[in-house]
Amino acid sequence: MSSFRPQNNRAWLGVLPVVLIVAFSAVIPLMTVVNYSVQDILDFNTRFFVGLQWYEQTLNDPRFIEAFLRQVAFSLTILTIQIPLGIWVAKGIPQNSRMTPLILVVLAMPLLIPWNVVGTIWQIFARPDIGLLGVTINALGITYNYTSDPLHAWITLVMMDVWHWTSLVALLAFAGLTSIPQPFYQAAELDGANRWQMFRYVELPRLRGVLIIAVLLRLMDSFMIYTEPFVLTGGGPGNATTLLSQHLATMAVGQFDLGPAAAFSVIYFLFILLFCWLFYSSVVARNED
């Protein structure tokens, strides 16, 4: 059964300045990367057209496939932790207290720390010989060494990202919670709703908008993460924590393989675009239902 509704698209003219800015900051660089991806570039003036050779090579490269699977696992893990944890933290923040601004400032602090500093903080914090976390875990009788054990490296990486970014989800969720009018709560109370029902049927539907933003931001950010794991583990032990961006940086900057790195970048970009579109369209489809 089809349903039709006319659209007025004249308002799109208002976004023309943004389109121009995006053209210069994103579209032109992206076109350049596509141009690079079909050539073997020896130096600035010496390059040869190779067609889709680099794409074929990248798609059949086991290191790319492994890094991709690690990347998906990492993004899913941090989203599974950060979204519920952020909502839980937001629900714990008092809405009309003199302490609220202070709590919000403290909560926002991890977001203000530069990414390489976050990596350095956790690198020292988790060290089994001098770091508070590492020494404490070992003192409890649990052998912990993130520099030699892949599982420990992963746990440390996930903990670091959760520490760094849960605040963002919490702040967005808090903004969503404060926008819910009190009569909704009063009506739910009159209906005898318990705390879970209040959350499930009053708060969660009205948080949907901010949670979509939170998930999209975290999905894109986590898929592009580079600095923190690079500083914390350097991709190790072995390649255990080498994510896509680090593998790409090794190709582009370390080995100066500009052609293969450009093909890698285009594939990487397409996957981010696909995931964001799939997620966005599934939410839109659910809203329409």
Binding site: R5, Q7, W277
Partner: peptide, 25 residues
């Protein structure tokens, strides 16, 4: 001829531009 939001075999309503984007992707 301005586009209309239409529901076809895709799970959500789409405009002509949406369907073009999906085609490219």
């Amino acid at each position: 001829s301005p586009t209309r939001l239409a529901k076809g075999f895709l799970p959500m309503q789409t405009t002509r531009g949406d369907r073009f984007f999906i085609s490219l992707l």
